[in-house]
């Protein structure tokens, strides 16, 4: 089937099999390897991207379901050369170790701060509760999101 997905503001039209998962479309079809492919069972959250305005686990969404919709990946987080405050927060607070969970964590954090600019620590923990950091670096991830909330949202 032919589909068109608007990824980070750019339209991409491709011929795909209906069974193709969105994560593979992004990584292997478009070369956007910032979104990571982790557990493949919608548990770990490494593959989180935005579908329209909502974070989803892209290993459990077909590319076909994104046809005619917008997708936002970590590559679309910075505004030109200017990092998003969430990215700045992860830099300032050592929010990543191996970096595998980082793109998904940052996209969820961006969504949280868009809806709740001043979250409590508990609200940050709840927001990322569907995402696993294999380095167990949660303390600094939470600090990074809170830093972003205090520094430009």
């Amino acid at each position: 089937m032919k589909l068109t997905v608007t990824v980070n503001g750019t339209d991409h039209t491709r011929e795909v099999e209906p069974r193709l998962l969105l994560i593979h479309f992004l990584r292997d079809g478009l070369g956007l390897t910032g979104s990571h492919w982790g557990c493949d069972t919608s548990n770990c959250g490494a593959c989180v991207v935005w579908l329209d305005e909502t974070p989803v686990k892209s290993c459990t969404v077909l590319a076909a379901m994104a046809d005619g919709h917008r997708v936002r990946t970590v590559e679309g987080l910075a505004d030109g050369g200017r990092l998003d405050p969430v990215q700045e927060g992860f830099t300032q607070c050592h929010g990543l170790q191996c970096g595998f969970c980082t793109p998904g964590m940052m996209l969820t954090a961006r969504w949280l701060l868009d809806h709740n600019p001043s979250p409590s620590e508990a609200e940050v923990r709840e927001a990322i509760s569907g995402q696993i950091c294999r380095c167990t670096g949660y303390e600094n991830i939470v600090r990074s999101v809170l830093w972003a909330s205090r520094n430009g949202g």
Partner: peptide, 20 residues
């Protein structure tokens, strides 16, 4: 996959993907 999908799947035997 875009284009040569079959080769890509065959090279990734451990990949969990739905059937056709």
């Amino acid at each position: 996959m875009t284009g040569g999908s079959d080769e890509w799947w065959e090279g990734n035997a451990a990949v969990q993907v739905p059937a056709q």
